[in-house]
Nucleic acid binder design. Sequence first.
DNA 1: CAAGTAGTTGCAATTTAGTCGCATTTATTA
DNA 2: TAATAAATGCGACTAAATTGCAACTACTTG
Lengths: 142, 142
Amino acid sequence: MNCQQHTAEIKNKLRQNKLKATPARLGLLDVFEHVKKPLSVGDLAQKLGRLGVDKATLYRNVESLEALGLLKKIRLSGRSEYYELASQTHHHHLICKNCGRVSDIEGCKVVANNKNLLKKSGFAEISGHSLEFFGICNNCAK
Amino acid sequence: MNCQQHTAEIKNKLRQNKLKATPARLGLLDVFEHVKKPLSVGDLAQKLGRLGVDKATLYRNVESLEALGLLKKIRLSGRSEYYELASQTHHHHLICKNCGRVSDIEGCKVVANNKNLLKKSGFAEISGHSLEFFGICNNCAK
DNA sequence: CAAGTAGTTGCAATTTAGTCGCATTTATTA
DNA sequence: TAATAAATGCGACTAAATTGCAACTACTTG
Ligand SMILES: [Mn+2]
Ligand SMILES: [Mn+2]
Ligand SMILES: [Zn+2]
Ligand SMILES: [Zn+2]
């Protein structure tokens, strides 16, 4: 699939959900396509430099694009929220406690033994992990 | 072990680490002993109501008590940081996407199959999870 | 292709979570 | 009880995120 087809697809998806295909949104998604790392709104603002998109707009857009299923919010350490393209295959992250560097861990089986994955990760030491499940509690499901 | 022994132990641990056993710290730890849920600094401030501990003090204390190993910082959803007693056995959490309710998942084997644990969790639906590892990357380890 | 309009944007003000410096107070020790 | 290292409260400050609103623009429909 080439880039124009891809853009057309995105525009469709937006319109199907009554979201306009604005320069801010297309630019934002384009940044995610080209940058491989998780990005905060601050990162985005910087990458979008010449487009000069207001931060309120960025916050509103990452939120609606997440709701739409194009972005995924991930919780790294630090004070800001990060986002990735939701189209990436499910994976987790290794976060350096020293410098904050983030590496993807491919081939997740939460279910299986992770040791092999970690060996291949390019990390010198794994000192901890955090695993959270999200869902609906019985009380809310009622 | 009764409650007084326990308090004495905590005082010792604090003093051994040149931390004073202040009302703010003992009160804070007491809240954690009695409340089973992870707490943010905001939660703590509220629970400590009548003691009227300043938020700067609370932030400084959760930090030093974490460094001391009495508290553990955990990242749930939402914007603030949460803490739990570090004395609890290693576990993870189920977080309701609807109401934010947090349940402990006991008997963690990140390594093993989680399905049985989830059945017992009191959740109607598990729709996702997040797993992060923390460590030192090769670049930082150098 | 020219309105009409729902949806979007930028801007400024505001809220929230957390941090910091400093003068005062307190827990501990001798 | 006096000396003092550590802790506290207060206020000012920061960064991240949110909100209201008037102006604007991408899309729809004719
Ligand atoms: Mn990733
Ligand atoms: Mn817990
Ligand atoms: Zn590193
Ligand atoms: Zn719930």
